[in-house]
Every structure is written in C-alpha cells, then in structure tokens.
Amino acid sequence: DLSALRVEEVQNVINAMQKILECPICLELIKEPVSTKCDHIFCKFCMLKLLNQKKGPSQCPLCKNDITKRSLQESTRFSQLVEELLKIICAFQLDTGLEYANSYNFAKKENNSPEHLKDEVSIIQSMGYRNRAKRLLQSEPENPSLQETSLSVQLSNLGTVRTLRTKQRIQPQRTSVYIELGSDSSEDTVNKATYCSVGDQELLQITPQGTRDEISLDSAKKAACEFSETDVTNTEHHQPSNNDLNTTEKRAAERHPEKYQGSSVSNLHVEPCGTNTHASSLQHENSSLLLTKDRMNVEKAEF
C-alpha cells in the first residue's frame, strides 16, 4: 500500500496539472479547448457565450486583445492532455480508494470495455495498479461463464418462442383441414349439385314461356288486323247491294208514291245487322237523297 506522504505528493502534482488545464472563465477543466490569436485557451462554450454578448469583436479576458469567431481554432494537443489527466485522476481514485477533492464528473469518461483496460497499462506502473489488474484478471474467467449461461438462457427462450410460433402455425392448418373434411358430406355435395341443376332447368323453362307469350301476342295482333281488313271488305261488298236497293226503291216510288213515303220513313230507323257505323252513315245519306228525289217527283206529278 501507498504511504500517506506519497499520496499527498501525487495529489499535489495532480492539482498543479489541473490548474494549468483549467479554463480562466469557468475555472474547470477545459472541455473542447479553443485557442485565440494571443495563444490563450478557453472552453469553446465559454468563448461563444462571451462573443454573443456583444456585437462585433470582444476582448480576451487575459490580455484584452480583440477576439472574433473566425480567429478561434481548435487545439487537439490540449484536448489530449486533458484526457490523460482524467485517466490519471481515475487511476488515483481506484488505487487509494479516496475521492479526489477537486474531482469532476468523471463517470462519463469511464469505460469498462476490454480495449480501455489494455490502455490503462500505459498509465502508471504502481503496486495498487498491479493489484487491481490481478483482481480484474481473476474476475475475467467468471465473466465468460456468466456470458455462457446468459447465452444458453437466451437460446432456450428463443427455442420456446420458436416452438410456440410453430404450434400457432400448425393449429390453424389443422382446424382448416378439419373444417374441410367435416363441413360438407358427400350427400350434401350431391344435393347441392341437384339443386343447381334444377335451378338451371327452371331458368331454361322460364325463358321459352316468355317467348311463347310474345308469339301469342303477335298472333293476336295479326288476327285483329285481319279482322279489321275483313270488316272493310264487308262494308265494300254491302255498298253495291245498297245501291241495288236504292234503284228498286226509286222504281217503286215512281209507281206508288204514297205507299213509299211511309216505308221510307220506317227504313230510316232500321239498321242492317253486321255493318259498322260507317255503313250506317252512308245509308242515312242515301235515304235522305231518296226522300228529296221522291218529293221532286211528287211535285212534278201535281203540276
């Protein structure tokens, strides 16, 4: 173990290094160091905050020279020094078990990766560091076993998940096959086929009936047209017969005018059967003409 005197000496050296690497504005270890034209180094955030307070150039807090945003430059070497100082402080805390008085939040800088452990060898070769390295080497064999167990647990979990997924996939297939086998029997399929065939026959029977009705309507229309044509021909046949009657009536009127007047009046009210309204109107006109002729003949006879 380190003596108290040596611990104090190391602590004083760390404090001196820390004062050199402090920012003059925030009085902390410089984060993202930036250098000016006057070779003074500050935190990048502190300098941008200072420049944004005034429009135009501002003055350096140490030498009062003008500073602009374009004049600022990043210093990589200074950032490396800060990183190495942080590593020294971490090693000091691990070796002594004491917390550094002016320690900052170094938890963000710590890294437990194997590459980081290899890099620590180049920091300080001390008894405390050696003991700590031995402890780490002793704890390393235990870690692979834990990793193997965790991997086995994960693989077993994956296997159970896969088996569950396969079961879920197989179950719908089985149910679907069961439904297909038990849903419709052979008799049901035959009945469905016969039902479809009967429906098709009914459709075939319905369509000819409609065509037959249309044919019957067409035949009825044709018969009505033929009947009207026969009526017209009958009226045409009746007209010459009426003319013959008129000639006979004229002759009778010349011989017996008194008797014919009474008979002509009675004939006005008689309509021949089986004739249309057109034929009756023609008869009325003929009878009126005959009456006028008879009157003329009677007057001539009187004179």
Rank of each mutant, 00 (worst) to 15 (best):
G199Q: 04
D294G: 14
G262H: 11
E254T: 07
D231H: 05
D1I: 12
S185F: 04
I215P: 06
Y260Q: 09
N102G: 14
R255M: 09
Q53S: 06
E99A: 12
S3C: 06
K37Y: 08
A220K: 00
I41C: 03
S35R: 07
E148M: 01
S71R: 10
G128D: 06
K108I: 14
R130S: 10
V7H: 08
Q205T: 02
R162N: 13
M17Y: 11
C90F: 07
A101Q: 02
L5K: 08
D1N: 09
L21R: 15
K31L: 13
P144S: 08
L2G: 06
F42Y: 07
R6H: 07
E229M: 01
I67K: 11
N286I: 12
E229I: 05
K87M: 03
V10Y: 12
G274Y: 14
K54D: 07
T76P: 07
S150C: 03
N52I: 12
G274T: 15
Q93T: 01
R255V: 05
E236V: 03
A279S: 12
S3N: 07
D66E: 14
Q261E: 13
N246C: 07
D244G: 03
F42R: 12
S126Q: 08
I14H: 15
T163V: 00
M127Y: 13
S216N: 10
T96I: 08
A220F: 00
R130D: 01
K44S: 04
N276H: 00
S216L: 03
S79G: 04
P144T: 08
T163P: 11
L48S: 09
N297T: 02
F78D: 01
Q80R: 06
R255F: 15
I170M: 01
K49D: 04
E115K: 04
Q261Y: 01
N297S: 12
T36V: 04
T166K: 14
A253V: 10
Q80E: 07
C46Q: 14
S58F: 10
D66I: 06
N102K: 05
L29H: 14
T36K: 13
R165S: 12
F45W: 06
D244H: 07
N105S: 12
R77G: 13
S156D: 14
T292A: 04
E214C: 02
P141G: 07
E115S: 09
R165P: 15
Q80G: 02
N297L: 05
S58G: 05
K221L: 00
S58W: 14
V265L: 06
S266I: 10
D39S: 07
S35T: 10
S241C: 05
T211G: 02
R162G: 13
E140V: 09
T96G: 13
S152G: 11
C43E: 15
R255A: 09
Q147M: 04
T36Q: 04
P240L: 05
K250L: 01
L137M: 13
S263T: 07
R174M: 00
L291Q: 08
A279N: 14
V34L: 09
A133C: 02
A4Q: 07
E249H: 14
K250C: 12
Q171K: 01
L5D: 09
A220L: 13
T230Q: 14
R70G: 09
T233M: 15
L203A: 12
K118Y: 15
F106H: 03
P257R: 04
L72P: 10
L29A: 13
F42C: 14
Q18C: 15
G159E: 11
E236K: 10
C38A: 15
E271L: 02
Q125Y: 06
L158E: 15
A4M: 04
I123V: 09
V153R: 10
K31G: 11
L62K: 08
L268F: 02
P272K: 08
L27E: 05
C23F: 13
I30T: 10
I215G: 15
L72D: 12
P272I: 07
L217E: 13
T275I: 13
K221M: 00
E140Y: 03
K259A: 01
R295W: 11
L155E: 13
T230P: 04
R6N: 05
T160H: 08
E140Q: 09
E28A: 11
C26W: 15
L62D: 05
G56A: 08
S75A: 04
Q147H: 12
C225F: 00
N234Y: 00
S156T: 06
P141W: 02
C26F: 15
A279I: 07
E140A: 13
K54T: 06
E83D: 04
L136N: 14
L50S: 04
K259L: 07
E32K: 12
C43M: 15
S228F: 00
E140R: 07
V13F: 03
L86D: 13
I89S: 08
L94W: 01
G199F: 08
R77E: 14
K134T: 11
P61K: 04
K108R: 09
K69R: 00
R77Y: 13
Q261K: 12
D39H: 02
Q53L: 09
V82E: 11
L204Q: 09
P61Q: 04
G199R: 10
E74M: 08
S122W: 15
N234A: 04
R162E: 04
E249V: 03
K55D: 11
K31I: 12
L137N: 04
N65F: 10
K118N: 14
D39W: 03
T68N: 03
Q138P: 06
L50W: 15
K54P: 04
K64V: 03
C63G: 14
L137W: 02
Q154A: 11
V82D: 01
A220G: 05
S183Y: 00
T207P: 01
N12S: 04
L72Q: 07
S150I: 00
S35I: 06
C46I: 15
E140S: 06
H284R: 15
L155F: 06
V10E: 15
S263I: 15
N12L: 14
S228T: 15
G56L: 09
C60Y: 15
F45A: 09
P141Q: 07
T275W: 00
C38N: 15
V10T: 12
V153K: 12
S185G: 14
E142M: 03
E22C: 06
P141F: 04
I41F: 04
A16S: 06
P57E: 05
C43G: 08
A101T: 02
D213C: 08
R77V: 12
V10K: 13
I30K: 09
Q18D: 14
A252W: 02
L94E: 12
L136P: 13
L21G: 11
L158F: 02
M127P: 01
L62C: 06
C90K: 09
S281R: 14
G262Q: 01
Q201R: 03
E229Q: 01
P141T: 10
L245R: 14
T211Q: 15
L282T: 10
R132P: 03
T149Q: 04
I30A: 05
D244Y: 00
P144I: 04
N242T: 00
C225I: 04
S266Y: 01
C46D: 13
F106R: 09
R135L: 07
V7N: 05
I41L: 07
K134M: 05
D188Y: 03
N52A: 11
R162Q: 06
S216F: 05
V190N: 03
E84V: 08
N243A: 09
E258P: 11
S280D: 03
Y100S: 15
L62E: 12
N105K: 08
G262I: 10
M17W: 12
N143R: 05
L48G: 09
C38F: 15
Q80F: 06
E249S: 08
K19V: 03
H256D: 03
I89C: 10
L203M: 04
L151G: 12
F42L: 06
T233H: 04
K293N: 02
H278V: 14
Q154I: 12
N143C: 08
S152Q: 11
L245M: 13
S186K: 04
L217K: 15
Q11P: 14
D294I: 00
E8M: 12
E258S: 02
L27A: 06
